[in-house]
Amino acid sequence: MNNLIEIHNITKNYHTKEGEISAIKDFNLNLKKGEIVSIVGPSGCGKSTLLSIIANLDSDYQGEIIQHNLKIAYMLQNAALLPYLTIYENAILGLKINHQLTKENLAYVDYLFDLYNLNDFKNNYPKSLSGGMKQRIALIRTLSLKPDLLLLDEPFSALDEQSKLIISEDVYKIIKEKNITAILVTHNIEEAIYFSDKIVVLSKRPAIIKNIISINCENNTSIYERRKDPNFHKYFDTIWKDLDINES
């Protein structure tokens, strides 16, 4: 089968004054178009490092990544909206920086503002928004670039429980609708299950793949439906054991 992106034998070491830090060891992953993969692992194990490498923000690593001119977008844990720009200016920042302020792209941004009921806030400034709304703006900023591959680095973990569910539903729906391929990094096991087709469980630093679990849910229309899947607890237990909280 044709892979959208192939990641072979990624190994990464950081060099610091205090010495060498081995962050990732022999990481392999293939993604097909439209597939959603979650990466779970203890905090500090090297997940963000991995995403940076996949996003081509860090070229200092060993191994090989095979992909063909993929448009890759990266969404961070915090919205990082710029306080001196309006909501709308923040949303189109990615397009502006990449010189893509075309009619078509701006129409897509308008469509997303509509979709997320944010039209009334376009000319407001970020400080007037709730955490969930801010993350929605960050989502629009990321999606406006029409990525083939979407990298999500714990994008819901700073949100309160309710916003977390609402925003993850938003993200789930839009990537399903647009058939976007996505990698979600999270340390929340449930989130990983209801979000993805495949879960990669990583060890403590240096990140080594401990297990890869395929998730098959009967009803994929929304994360609410997926949460109700009869196998949900079985998946949860497997990952819980793989993560091995007591491992020293």
Partner: peptide, 13 residues
Amino acid sequence: DEYCFKLFKTLHA
């Protein structure tokens, strides 16, 4: 802010 730098990096500024 370091975090905003990271954002700009992800946007390939």
